[in-house]
């Protein structure tokens, strides 16, 4: 049986499950897996502040993306615009309830809950309060992570625009830019925010040891 504090010195790569012994890093250094070059862990003292700022920005773009029109088209004088509300109205009209429900979760509920819980998590970890809540949020975020599909929705927007290119005049809405912005922020946040670091920081902030 291995002692727990010895287990803490080990890390397993998320991609190839190779076991490594952690080496201490200095500021802004990163450790990668020897087998598959995946990032294992990193050292970034400013992680909380940076991520908090990014999450707030992403929240604002999310608000814009959800409330304004994404694409406006014009076919020989006939106009139509794609907004989130029109999307659900049309789906309900065609009685596509299962697709509508999946859309509701994938495009609306999951992105909102991911951003909101990341914000609450970072905020409380920064001021060092509510240890139980932050722990639950860390677990919740790990469950939500695979269901984030903003990037795929954006690619789908591009594909449908190319399909409509010949028959319609396409005008990009404000929400389209907001979606693009959200996508970029999402990539930066995922790159910045390492859950491995967050768990270590969690233990540090609330002053308990894994023993």
């Amino acid at each position: 049986m291995i002692k727990e504090h010895e287990l803490d010195k080990l890390i397993i790569c998320k991609k190839c499950h190779t076991l490594y012994e952690k080496v201490p890093l200095t500021k802004n250094e990163k450790a990668f897996c020897n087998e598959c070059n995946v990032l294992l862990y990193q050292q970034d003292a400013d992680m909380l502040n940076k991520s908090l700022a990014l999450v707030i920005t992403a929240g604002i773009s999310l608000f814009i993306a959800f409330n304004f029109s994404i694409i406006n088209i014009n076919i020989q004088g006939l106009e139509q615009s794609l907004t989130l509300t029109s999307l659900f109205m049309v789906l309900a009209e065609h009685e596509q309830y299962v697709v509508g429900l999946l859309f509701l979760f994938i495009i609306v509920i999951f992105p909102i809950s991911i951003l909101l819980s990341t914000f609450v998590l970072l905020f409380f970890m920064k001021i060092g309060k509510a240890p139980y809540l932050t722990k639950r949020l860390l677990i919740l975020l790990a469950h939500l992570k695979p269901w984030n599909m903003v990037d795929i929705f954006f690619i789908s927007l591009l594909v449908s625009m190319v399909k409509l290119f010949d028959i319609a005049n396409i005008e990009l809405g404000i929400a389209f830019v907001a979606f693009l912005f959200m996508l970029i922020l999402d990539i930066i946040i995922t790159k910045n925010l390492s859950f491995h670091e967050l768990w270590l920081l969690h233990a540090q902030t609330y002053g308990y040891k894994d023993e």
Binding site: I71, I73, Q80, L82, S86, L87, V90, L91, H94, Q96, V99, F103, I152, F153, S156, L157, V159, S160, K163, L164, A168
Partner: peptide, 9 residues
């Protein structure tokens, strides 16, 4: 996603 976006537009 594409089918749904097209059906809205």
């Amino acid at each position: 996603f594409v089918v749904v976006i097209l059906s809205v537009l």
